[in-house]
Simulated assay, not measured.
Amino acid sequence: MTSGQPLPRAAEPTLTIAQVVERTGLSHDTLRYYEKAGLIERVGRTTGNQRRYAAADLAWLEFLIRLRGTGMSIGDMQTFAELRSRGDGSVPDRLAMLREHRADLADRMRALRRNAAALDDKIRHYERLLDEPGSDDLS
Rank of each mutant, 00 (worst) to 15 (best):
residue 27 S to N: 08
residue 88 D to G: 11
residue 15 L to C: 06
residue 59 A to N: 10
residue 50 Q to T: 10
residue 3 S to L: 12
residue 41 E to G: 12
residue 34 Y to G: 04
residue 116 A to Q: 15
residue 133 P to S: 07
residue 112 L to Q: 08
residue 90 S to G: 10
residue 58 L to A: 00
residue 134 G to V: 01
residue 12 E to S: 09
residue 39 L to N: 01
residue 42 R to G: 08
residue 100 E to I: 03
residue 111 A to K: 12
residue 4 G to H: 07
residue 35 E to F: 01
residue 53 Y to I: 00
residue 74 I to C: 04
residue 29 D to N: 10
residue 14 T to M: 12
residue 136 D to M: 13
residue 75 G to L: 05
residue 63 F to D: 11
residue 55 A to R: 04
residue 126 Y to P: 08
residue 117 A to M: 11
residue 71 G to S: 08
residue 36 K to L: 08
residue 21 V to E: 15
residue 40 I to D: 04
residue 78 Q to H: 02
residue 53 Y to F: 15
residue 89 G to R: 07
residue 79 T to A: 09
residue 75 G to Y: 01
residue 82 E to P: 00
residue 63 F to H: 05
residue 43 V to E: 02
residue 65 I to Q: 11
residue 27 S to F: 11
residue 12 E to P: 04
residue 94 R to C: 15
residue 129 L to M: 09
residue 19 Q to E: 15
residue 132 E to L: 03
residue 108 R to D: 07
residue 55 A to P: 07
residue 84 R to E: 05
residue 88 D to S: 12
residue 60 W to K: 00
residue 33 Y to F: 14
residue 89 G to V: 04
residue 139 S to Y: 07
residue 94 R to Q: 14
residue 79 T to H: 06
residue 113 R to V: 04
residue 7 L to M: 09
residue 113 R to L: 11
residue 59 A to G: 00
residue 8 P to G: 07
residue 42 R to N: 09
residue 99 R to K: 13
residue 108 R to P: 09
residue 30 T to P: 03
residue 27 S to M: 14
residue 41 E to C: 07
residue 79 T to E: 13
residue 52 R to V: 11
